[in-house]
C-alpha cells in the first residue's frame, strides 16, 4: 500500500491546445510573404543604423523638435479634455440604473465599436471635415477617448456601493443629487485616474497621428526618416523617449496621490 502514485491528471486537453497553437504559428510563418534571406544580415544592418542615429545625434534641429513636441502634447491634452467632457455624461447614461436600458445597451455598443477602430483611422475620417491640422488629431483622440473613458466610466459606476445611492434616493434626492452625493464621492478617484491614464495614452497616440500629416513630432519624424537624415531621427527619438517618460512619471505620481491618498505623517513623533 501507499507506494502507488496518484494517477497523473489528464493532459489531452493541454496537448490539443498546444498543437493547435503550434499549427497556427507554423502556418503563419509558412504563408507570410517575407524575404527570409534578408533576415541574415539584419543584425549587422540594425547595428549600422543605430550607429548612424545615435553616434552623433543632430542637435541643430532641437528647437523645431521641441515646438513639434509641444504641438503633439497639445493635441493629446485637447483630445483628453474633449473626450472627458463628452464621455463622462455618456458613461453615467450607460451605467446600470441611470439611463433607460435601450440607451444603455446602445451606448455600450458604441463604446465597443470605437475601441475597435484605431485612432489613426478615426483621424482619416475626420480629416475630410477639418483638413490636415492638429485639430483633426485632437478630435480623433477625443473620439477614441470616448470609447475607452466611456467603458471604464460605466464599469466604475456599476461598481459603486449601492448604499449611499439608496440613502440619497430615500432622502428625496433628484437624479443629479444622487450622482453628486451618492456616486461621485466613491467613483471620483477612479475617474480622475482614468483621465490621467487616457492622457498618457493620448501622448503616445498623438505622436503616431503625425504619420498621416496632422502635424506634431510624428510628422517631423517621418519626414526626416524619408530624407534619411539619421542624425536628426536619432535626436527626435531621444526627445520622444524623454518627453513620454517625463509625462508618464508626472501623471503617474498624480495618479498614485489620488488613488492612495496623501502621504501619512507619523503622529507619534
Amino acid at each position: 500500500m501507499s507506494a502507488v502514485a496518484p494517477p497523473r491528471p489528464s493532459r489531452t486537453r493541454g496537448r490539443v491546445v498546444a498543437s493547435v497553437v503550434v499549427v497556427v504559428v507554423v502556418v503563419a510563418f509558412w504563408s507570410v510573404d517575407i524575404n527570409w534571406a534578408r533576415l541574415g544580415n539584419l543584425p549587422s544592418e540594425i547595428v549600422r543604423y543605430l550607429w548612424l542615429m545615435f553616434s552623433a545625434p543632430d542637435w541643430s534641429k532641437l528647437g523645431e523638435a521641441l515646438y513639434q513636441t509641444w504641438r503633439s502634447v497639445e493635441m493629446a491634452w485637447v483630445g483628453t479634455v474633449f473626450g472627458i467632457i463628452v464621455a463622462t455624461p455618456l458613461s453615467f447614461l450607460a451605467a446600470k440604473g441611470f439611463g433607460p436600458p435601450p440607451v444603455q445597451a446602445a451606448l455600450r455598443g458604441v463604446f465597443a465599436v470605437i475601441r475597435a477602430v484605431p485612432e489613426i483611422i478615426i483621424a482619416i475620417i475626420i480629416l475630410s471635415v477639418t483638413g490636415l491640422t492638429p485639430l483633426t488629431g485632437a478630435l480623433a483622440l477625443a473620439v477614441g477617448g470616448i470609447g475607452t473613458l466611456g467603458k471604464w466610466g460605466f464599469e466604475s459606476i456599476d461598481g459603486v456601493p449601492r448604499g449611499p445611492i439608496e440613502a440619497v434616493r430615500a432622502a428625496g434626492g433628484s437624479t443629479s443629487q444622487v450622482l453628486r452625493w451618492g456616486v461621485w464621492p466613491s467613483a471620483s478617484p477612479e475617474f480622475l485616474s482614468f483621465w490621467l491614464y487616457r492622457f498618457e495614452i493620448n501622448v503616445r497616440a498623438s505622436a503616431v497621428l503625425g504619420l498621416i500629416g496632422v502635424g506634431g513630432i510624428g510628422d517631423m519624424l517621418t519626414s526626416y526618416t524619408q530624407y534619411r537624415q539619421w542624425g536628426v531621427v536619432g535626436m527626435l527619438l531621444i526627445v520622444v523617449v524623454i518627453v513620454t517618460i517625463a509625462l508618464d512619471a508626472i501623471s503617474g505620481a498624480i495618479r498614485r496621490r489620488i488613488t492612495e491618498g496623501a502621504p501619512v505623517h507619523d503622529l507619534e513623533r
Binding site: 503616445r204 497616440a205 526618416t225 527619438l237 513620454t244 517618460i245
Partner: peptide
Amino acid sequence: LNIVRAVPELLYAAILVAMVGVGAL
C-alpha cells in the same frame, strides 16, 4: 524596456521600413 516602450510601434515601423525596406518584415 522602459525606453523601448516609450516609442509607439508605428514610429518604429516607419523607421524600420526605411532600414529594411517595405513589407511585412
